[in-house]
Design a protein around this nucleic acid. Sequence first.
DNA 1: TCTGGGGTCCTAGGACCC
DNA 2: TCTGGGGTCCTAGGACCC
Length: 439
Amino acid sequence: MYALVDCNNFYVSCERVFNPSLSYKPIVVLSNNNGCIIARSNEAKALNIPMGAPLHLYKEIIKKNNVIVYSSNYTLYGDMSSRVMNSFNYFVPDVEVYSIDEAFLNLQGFDNSIIYQKMVNMRKKVYQWTGIPVSIGLGPTKTLAKLANKIAKKYSDNGIYQITVSDQLTKILNDFNVEDIWGISKGCGNRLKKVGIYTALQLQRANPRHIRNCLSVVGERIVYELRGYPNLYLENDNVKKSITVSRSFENTVDDLPNLKKALANYIFRAAEKLRFQKGLCSGLCVFINTNRYRKKDLQYSNKGITIFDEPTNDTSLMIKRGFEVLQGIYRVKHNYKKIGVTLINFTINNKELSLKFPTMPGEKFIQGNLFSQSLLSQKKSNKFMKILDNINYRMGAGTIFYGSQGIKINLKNKKISGPLDYYKSKSFTTNWQELPKVN
DNA sequence: TCTGGGGTCCTAGGACCC
DNA sequence: TCTGGGGTCCTAGGACCC
């Protein structure tokens, strides 16, 4: 079983911890440059102020209802976040910090009969220790725990809700639209509607292969997750695979010296984060944008990448190379609104943090993405279909290699697995004849 | 006037080799 | 309808998430 613990109105709750008089009052917290509303108290939500709303469109409502407005204080939120996350460890060892205000807990190994009460205790203690109220969703998969959390927030008296695979699940899924499911965005929802799938229940009962055509392997995994078969696992290695620092300017900037000044600052901070996770990076990407909302203005956005000779965490080298990239993508006569840097290609303890599948030197294998539509549509797809018929293709997020020796499947980041033994291995090799038949 | 910042993963398909 | 076929490596860009 999994739990998804989510802090209620996190940024607002943080402000309230240090100013209890804010309780029960409508509050919003703003983004950088006070541009957008990125957190709302329940009272503010009741005023129909949406998430991410531009502040200037809601000035009137805010004034009329005496909504208290805060600029964001990320130092405070980050600090509070680690206090909350650390407190989970007191109850459960296996924790994935999913975002600043959310964590998945792996409850495998705990007796089912005590889990609910354990969560009740944890919730109480977290509030006692940190002052932050949390909601907890429980379910047999991450996706269902996410859904349970949604219900807990809305309908549960004690902030906890548990989903089990039963009639209850059927009823719940029937009540939710596909877009309410974690991982199904509006775009995916529209694609599903075109094939007649509107509710979460319809999605759960759909043919996984059919959903794969529609939404790729990502959607297919969700189908299994909704049925209660875990396809997504805890990721708690706590190591980032890319680090970005970027900001919008309060006003636009058009000259290179000022862009450089900002960029140097951001690279400095990105390098700090990199050293914090004791890693090196092999490259960086600099990007700049004009103000995309000003449709009348001349628009320009570009990015440039540089790769270092060897992995480094040397700030001054990164800044020097970052400047070179900036000079390459900088164009005069543009009013820039945003600039940023992303560090890429990380190495930790001399090991590359691969974003790609490992290649296999010396092996004569054909490589192709298991779910590549183009491959499937081509003539050679017949060969792939043969394989797909023989293995359970829902392990899909890997690369499949095959040749005279047999086939080999690499699973990415050990995340994909299933009920069969070989799913659990990182790679899988066998002769054609030995391929297991899967229903 | 005023519209955030930071992530992850998957796929298509280009480029180049024989 | 097809335009040689197979193999390898890489990356831009799209989607989705908070």
